[in-house]
Amino acid sequence: MVDKIIPQSARFYLCDDVRTEVGGKSTLIGLYPNDEITLSRPAAVEPEPATAIFFEGFSILVAFDRGLGELELLIDLKAPNGQSLITGQKAKLKAEKIGPVTFSARFRPFATPEFGEHTYEVSIDGTKFTYRFQLVHSPQDIEGQAHKIELA
């Protein structure tokens, strides 16, 4: 009898929040269907080297094709410039029977050095699943949505 099955594929969903319902279903709130989060900033579009883009945050749901047993995950998140925002964060999933497995992560609040393509990676026993999403600037300034902070 097999006691562990590692997923072979995954789908990623970018949203504002994920809620786990009774019975294991996931409810996605504020889905970004084009894998792009659009933020507004005051006139200075690109942050200067000593500043960061700071906003309320987001969530990512990963739906793996199948899994079984206790699965250990390693999570990494990188900015467009390659800077690690999260490195080697550990999480565990437990699948009692063979079937689809989901995992969600919240990034609240969130700070990054620049707009552009961010890379989210989840590894399970050496099998890596990669997702890329965009953080883009809107020319409109929506008060309170994005803020500039000084880095020490």
Rank of each mutant, 00 (worst) to 15 (best):
L77R: 08
L77H: 12
L77F: 05
K78M: 12
A79P: 04
A79C: 07
P80A: 09
P80Y: 06
P80E: 06
N81A: 11
G82Q: 10
G82E: 09
G82A: 07
G82L: 07
Q83I: 02
S84F: 15
L85R: 03
L85T: 02
L85F: 00
I86R: 04
I86P: 02
I86N: 03
T87S: 15
Q89I: 01
Q89H: 11
Q89K: 14
A91R: 08
A91L: 03
K92S: 12
K92E: 12
K92W: 07
K92L: 14
K92H: 11
L93M: 13
L93K: 04
L93W: 00
L93D: 02
K94E: 12
A95I: 00
A95L: 03
A95E: 07
E96L: 11
E96V: 06
E96C: 01
I98C: 05
I98F: 03
G99I: 08
G99F: 04
V101F: 01
V101T: 08
V101N: 03
T102D: 13
T102L: 05
T102V: 11
T102E: 14
F103L: 08
A105I: 07
A105G: 02
A105W: 01
A105S: 12
R106D: 12
R108W: 10
P109W: 08
P109R: 13
P109Y: 08
F110C: 00
A111P: 04
A111G: 14
A111S: 15
P113S: 13
P113F: 02
P113I: 03
P113T: 10
P113V: 05
F115W: 13
F115L: 12
G116T: 10
G116A: 10
G116I: 08
G116P: 01
E117G: 09
E117V: 15
E117W: 08
E117M: 14
H118V: 01
H118T: 05
T119K: 14
T119W: 01
T119H: 09
Y120R: 09
Y120S: 06
Y120I: 06
E121H: 04
E121N: 13
V122S: 07
V122N: 06
S123G: 06
S123W: 07
S123L: 11
S123C: 11
I124A: 03
I124D: 05
I124M: 02
D125G: 10
D125F: 07
D125I: 01
G126F: 06
G126K: 05
T127F: 04
T127P: 00
T127I: 08
F129M: 11
F129N: 10
F129G: 09
T130A: 10
T130W: 04
T130H: 04
T130Y: 03
Y131T: 10
Y131E: 13
R132M: 14
R132K: 15
R132D: 11
R132G: 13
F133P: 04
Q134P: 00
Q134V: 07
L135D: 00
L135H: 01
L135V: 10
V136N: 07
V136G: 02
H137A: 14
H137G: 03
S138H: 09
